[in-house]
Design a protein around this nucleic acid. Structure first.
Length: 373
DNA sequence: GACGCGTGGCA
DNA sequence: TTGCCAAGCGT
């Protein structure tokens, strides 16, 4: 292992000088208020920076402080998260805000232990709030920092294994410049995003290249050593937009499933030997006890989530037995349901594929026909 | 420690 | 089109 601590002062100065010159102008780098740091850090988990910026700005306009989050409904919180994915992040922000109001006078605690007790705040986010928000001398090790340190010190075991993690966390703590950790931790992550990238690293532009062991050995592209990749499973799914008396039927997903507490159109898997049309009729009956017929195919949407790649067949549906009223479902797959006018669909948070479907049908003349007839 | 949890960009 | 990713956390 190279002796990083011996040269750490020079390393810190080079990195901090680079950060001062090259850091991006981001909305959460204005005041470093702990609340803004928190929201930005949660949004940035597993999310590309460019995507998070717009969400952050809309969020801050509607929820300027912890109290406004705590007072809002979870449904509204989720609409501000719609499209970002990993929705437990939003649900945990809501829960944590309520805990902060109830137990911490509505402000963030300043200790790692107290932060880790809040839902959605793990080791990385706690370190980020302490260092970036409060200016404390705490490490904040994310995938960028892991990658940089795996290259700098040539870690030859998969980064997620215990020995690699121990080496990384030791190095991260040893490198911290007292009093300058707010800038230093951000500088490491910024370096990972702009220079020491996972693919196509820009070593000639790197301010700390002289310290890099993987660079010296010419094996930068072999570090970090990746872990195993999960198998991606193809899925055939159907969903049905049931239209009756000018309204659309939507249901709220259960809280223990993927897309927990988001709204959706009913649907499910196409079984072997089953047509998509038959599947949507069967799924409607199983989930709502509505007898429907598949009226018209709207579109096919392809999208991925976690370890699945989905082909989603989308249909307009109508009730088999016409009724003058809006019938009540018997729910078997959802916690709640309602009939909404199409112009109020924006008030509910949908998974991305269903939001794409909504965008399609709102530009679809057949919907106007169904609503008019 | 492994897995579940979303989404869109990019080569 | 496909196969990686991108500032993790909870269980």
């Amino acid at each position: 292992m190279p002796q990083l601590p011996d040269t750490s002062r020079e390393f810190q100065d080079q990195l901090l000088e680079w950060f001062a010159a090259h850091q991006r102008d981001l909305p959460w780098r204005r005041t470093y208020a702990p609340y803004a740091v928190w929201i930005s850090e949660i949004m940035l988990q597993q999310t590309q920076m460019d995507r998070a910026v717009g969400y952050f700005q809309r969020w801050m306009e509607r929820f300027p402080d912890i109290a406004s989050v705590a007072a809002a409904s979870e449904d509204e919180i989720l609409t501000y998260w719609e499209g970002l994915g990993y929705y437990s992040r939003a649900r945990n922000i809501h829960k944590a805000a309520q805990t902060l109001v109830r137990e911490h006078d509505g402000v963030f605690p300043r200790t790692r232990k107290a932060l880790l007790a809040l839902p959605g705040i793990g080791p990385y986010t706690a370190g980020a709030i302490l260092s970036i928000g409060f200016g404390q001398d705490e490490p904040a090790v994310d995938a960028n920092v892991e990658r940089i340190l795996a290259r700098l010190t040539d870690i030859d075991t998969p980064v997620k294994t215990k020995p690699a993690q121990e080496a990384i966390h030791t190095a991260a703590r040893d490198l911290l410049p007292p009093g300058r950790c707010r800038e230093f931790n951000q500088a490491l992550m910024e370096l990972g995003a702009l220079v020491c990238r996972a693919r196509a690293p820009r070593c000639p532009n790197c301010p700390v290249a002289p310290f890099c062991e993987a660079r010296r050995l010419g094996i930068t592209d072999q570090r970090p050593v990746p872990g195993k990749r999960p198998v991606i499973t193809p899925l055939e799914i159907v969903t049905g937009v049931l239209v009756h008396r000018g309204r659309l039927f939507i249901q709220k997903r259960r809280s223990d499933s993927v897309w927990a507490n988001l709204w959706e159109f009913p649907g499910g898997r196409v079984e072997p030997e089953e047509t998509p049309e038959n599947a949507v009729v069967r799924e409607f009956w199983e989930e709502t006890e509505f007898a429907v017929k598949a009226a018209d195919k709207i579109t096919v949407i392809r999208h991925g989530y976690t370890t699945y790649k989905v082909t989603l067949h989308c249909f307009f549906c109508t009730l088999e037995n016409s009724s003058n009223s809006l019938p009540e479902p018997v729910l078997h797959a959802a916690q709640e349901a309602l009939w909404t006018p199409p112009d109020r669909l924006h008030e509910f948070a949908f998974p991305a594929a269903h939001r794409k479907l909504i965008d399609t049908i709102q530009r679809d003349l057949r919907l106007q026909t169904l609503l008019g007839g």
